[in-house]
Design a binder for these strands. Structure first.
Lengths: 329, 329
DNA sequence: CAGGGGCGTGGGAGCGCTCCCAGATTCCGG
DNA sequence: CCGGAATCTGGGAGCGCTCCCACGCCCCTG
């Protein structure tokens, strides 16, 4: 293995100079820098990560905790993971993958052993057990999702409140007077994941502001048919629908069709869903920028590693894309 | 930070003894071991990963290279990743995530800097550019997928040949005399990913052995309708279908229904697809054991790290699960 | 009772790097 | 011509751990 002293010898400088050339932590004459770089290339030198971590107290690795729960749209998670890895690389960092099931112990392990410099936790719940640990850890962290009490934490998420409001406003603008939000399965509300509640709140608030009638109904994908039938029966005047439940979208479309409603002629439908799904089904949608979230989480984390204090809370805006499930205006 | 000498002092032993208690590399009296463990707990000691890696020349981290290409079923990839992480943890290892787009340089980087002890590469292609690097690396690796020339490499994959054959045999056993395999999009065959060809080969071989007529047709999910119509038109006697193309499964079902064929009465259909898809659509399927593959890849890698030489090639069997898309026997 | 083999433990060099503390050289103004 | 600032480089301690080399003790055998 080529070590820093080999490079130093080859270039006719001291090991410390090689180190400084690599880190840029002090000025080096152009000539010396060039000689050192040439030697590095010639010998194929790669700094030993462990030695570096030991001496500098920085591993240049961040941990990423991915969710395991079902009910999560896997491609979205994957997009965020990929974006996080890619972004971390631009900061010369690598990503260590942890799974939810290691729980609190996993966080303590990788942080305590200095395996990682910082942590990103995906899919944070309202009363997440990991919150106290993250707060007490000596290492910076960024949460994706909002807990009930984000004090002392850096959180980032989509702005579901705004997304819900945008749906209601858009439907109201189209002239609908009775609108509905078909939401997550009941279990999601019960678990208090937060995002479901926030979408609902935004939807209801905006509807009230526009003076349109709004109903909200949870929906299990397996019972999409029943949900659709119930809604149409109980609210005959219903003409605008928002759906915030990816796996239920297709069954719902089938159910509406089966009940004789045509989209967009009889019913306007806007989905809060990832672009790939909305594109495939050609639905007007509020797009969920997954890569952006993964990217931003890393950016925030790097800010913290640099000693800056980023805002405690960031809400990423989403945008409405009009497709064929609502009438052209 | 608590260091090993703190623990040693607290327990009244030498640092080396603490190290040996932790590593188990030499026998320690029960009494000493207990005292040391108590001190470790009392002080909350965690060995510094970097120092460990430096002194032992082992980082206890493995790299996992995930594919980025589209056309890959994301949930399958995620299942494998999760399984790999979980399994690695049972061997006291962590997983560093790399993306395909770092290419050959990424492998050299993490291996050369001793960041990782070993590498798993997913989605290996027939003439993968990374093969020579993996062969020359001083670190063990396991490939998921089979290249054209696996010499000197450890490869593991599903047995697509057997899966294709199983489809043909099963359909033949049901009494079908004309059967078809609807395969991957044409692009996949052209890229030479291997698995598509192997499924086809197995299907055709088994069909020939049973003396039934077999046709194979690539299929783009966007043109599923055309594929179905073509097949039914050109082969009026066709009654048995195998599908090896996840995203095309649903469109194909729709297309067959639209053409007036009822499954399973007019048409038997068996899908080579992940269980979740097959369960959802209630299809007879050859299941693709994704977690098993991720798990086995890690097991193989650990064998290599332990100095054992596992078999160069492993093909994981898959099993046929009968559901409602074929007649009950 | 001497000698040898097990068993349990300590000491400490060394892993490859970073970064503090100086030292050498050059350049400028007075 | 000299003092001091500015610029560049070297030396080397120390990061926390592992593992080689000993050493001390006890028990068994001849």
């Amino acid at each position: 293995m080529v070590k820093i002293s080999d490079v130093a010898h080859h270039a006719g400088v001291s090991p410390s100079t090689v180190s400084y050339v690599l880190s840029g932590k002090r000025s080096i004459s152009d000539q010396t820098r060039r000689r050192v770089m040439d030697s590095i290339r010639a010998l194929g030198y790669r700094p030993h990560a462990g030695a570096r971590a030991l001496a500098s107290n920085r591993s240049n690795v961040i941990a990423l905790v991915v969710p395991l729960r079902s009910g999560i749209h896997v491609p979205i998670v994957m997009q965020m993971v990929i974006a996080a890895v890619t972004t971390a690389r631009t900061y010369d960092h690598d990503v260590l993958l942890l799974t939810q099931d290691e729980g609190v112990g996993g966080l303590e392990r990788v942080a305590g052993s200095s395996l990682v410099d910082a942590i990103i936790v995906m899919d944070v719940e309202l009363h997440d057990l990991r919150l106290p640990v993250l707060r007490s850890l000596e290492r910076p962290s960024v949460l994706i999702g909002f807990p009930a009490d984000p004090t002392g934490l850096t959180c980032i998420d989509w702005d579901f409140e705004a997304a819900g409001a945008a749906c209601a406003e858009y439907l109201a603008d189209l002239g609908h007077r009775e609108i509905a939000l078909i939401g997550a399965p009941p279990a999601v509300y019960e678990r208090g994941t937060g995002f479901a509640e926030r979408t609902k709140a935004g939807f209801q608030r905006a509807a009230a502001e526009r003076g349109v009638d709004a109903v909200v109904r949870p929906c299990d994908p397996d019972n999409a048919r029943a949900a659709a039938d119930d809604l149409l029966r109980d609210h005959p005047g219903l003409t605008g629908i928002a759906v915030h439940n990816e796996p239920a979208v297709e069954p719902l479309l089938t159910a509406f069709r089966a009940s004789g409603r045509h989209i967009p002629d009889d019913l306007s439908l806007v989905a809060i869903a990832p672009d790939d799904l909305a594109e495939r089904l050609d639905l007007t949608s509020i797009s969920i920028p997954a890569e952006e979230l993964g990217r931003q989480a890393v950016v925030r984390l790097m800010e913290k590693l640099d000693g800056h204090q980023p805002p405690g809370a960031t809400l990423l805006p989403s945008r409405l894309v009009v497709r064929s499930s609502t009438p052209a205006t």
